[in-house]
Design a protein around this nucleic acid. Structure first.
Lengths: 253, 253
DNA sequence: CGTTGTGAACGTCTTCACAGCA
DNA sequence: TGCTGTGAAGACGTTCACAACG
């Protein structure tokens, strides 16, 4: 068990809302696609459709960044790409280390989506001595012993943990001690980090469990009068919900 | 561009809040760990710490499931494991197909976290004829041509898409047409699905971009009076935020 | 005229604080 | 007494609807 809590008064100052930040990469991706097709301007309606959100939300999001649109016309694609990139900090280069080069770590190392944004895989690190020196995605794997030196030498501030759950906290502690202040955690563990360090987690099995929950709901209601939906096409995340009266009978074990 | 929108009035009926559903897997994992250590009961405070949330939130979450605790004592670990599993639909077996057996797909096939919950990898599917028959994680890869038959024969309702972005929508359409109603999408694309189909997406580069945003903020404020924090340990997601006055000067391209 | 930018209304999620119960 | 369960308050996020403006 860890030490004291700092209570964190959630001083969300005059910054961009977290929900908006989480959508900026989506907009950026849609805009990049438009840019590649040499589309010069785009309306909030069109861009929203491409990003899978509704247009009011998109306009509100953009309003936090500034007034980058032209009334009656829309947004200049190139300009917006630049502004969002800058806001996200992607105009600079972020060296990243990946720790744990198993199946997942290797997949991450090979993933093209990193390099295309400002991320550069500076090093791959694994605890298995047999892996050392072997190239994965063209980058030689280095041993965990050298973790601190690798972080320092490369000025790494973002680390990706793709180790088994048991090793994750220890790796995390070492990353943080060496100067990493942002961590993307793929291991199914809750990481304890000092104040000022950001952790985001991606848990594959959690996503499936959430789907299972909704799937179960659907199955339980298939007989209900509901089938009258005209099979229209919506975008993403339907979170469909027919009427359901009660909790399914609470009976003690 | 897709067809009409159905507007979806967000009829979140008398169900469990989505935010709560998203945390149930976390509680379940923490509880499973306690169960393995044969801990009989746990307080909201302890369990909350183990799951990385605060205790008020946890109690509120559990209150949506029913009154499963004992005042003055806490929660019975085994009983809660059962109740949450049932609520999530994990007491039944969910056959899952993974489409796109590249680095990521292989990592997913090998991921132990699926089998341990109620998920069973029923089939691996890839478009590359050279992959056909080759076993990955002990399961022979099958060709995309047989997708519909595989779905039907195995009664699959949950599909995982780990293909390149370009193939994702097409694969999605075929999955849905064959009867899949829940999709976990790893491809960096917005999927269009009919009403009643759930899509959840995991985008590795988006998570990194969100980290970069916060990282940039930290760097911009390092000189501010702030360093006086007593290095206390908090849990997860600090979302640290020092004071920041202005948007960084809006200058046209 | 068409589209942005935004106040105001609304809904959802989190946190507080304490009554109620074992 | 100690911990759960929950109303009430507050923060946050989304949507509406329209004024502002190129």
């Amino acid at each position: 068990m860890a030490t004291g809590r700092t209570h964190r008064p959630a001083t969300r100052s005059r910054g961009i809302p977290e929900a908006t930040v989480a959508r900026l990469p989506l907009y950026l991706r849609a805009l990049t696609a438009l840019s590649e097709r040499s589309v010069p301007t785009v309306s909030s309606e069109e861009l929203a459709a491409a990003a899978g959100v509704n247009s009011a939300k998109l306009r509100k999001d953009f309003s936090y960044l500034g007034s980058y649109g032209t009334r009656g016309v829309g947004y200049d694609v190139e300009y917006l790409v630049y502004q969002i990139s800058r806001e996200l900090g992607l105009t600079q280069d972020w060296p990243v280390v990946i720790v744990g080069i198993g199946n997942l770590g290797a997949a991450l190392a090979n993933y093209g989506g990193f390099a295309s944004r400002g991320f550069r895989v500076a090093a791959l690190i694994d605890a298995d001595p047999a892996m050392a020196g072997k190239p994965v995605a063209g980058i030689p794997v280095q041993h965990t012993d050298d973790l601190e030196k690798i972080i320092t030498d490369n000025g790494v501030s973002i680390g990706v943990i793709a180790t088994p759950a048991g090793a994750a906290q220890q790796v995390c502690d070492r990353l943080v001690a060496a100067g990493v202040t942002s961590i993307l955690n793929f291991a199914p563990t809750v990481l304890s980090v000092p104040d000022g360090v950001d952790v985001r987690k991606v848990d594959l099995s959690i996503e499936l469990q959430i789907l299972a929950f909704h799937e179960q709901r659907k199955a339980g209601e298939e007989a209900s009068g509901e089938a009258a939906v005209p099979a229209a096409v919506t975008r993403e995340e339907s979170t469909d919900q027919g009427p359901d009266g009660e909790h399914p009978a609470v009976m003690p074990a």
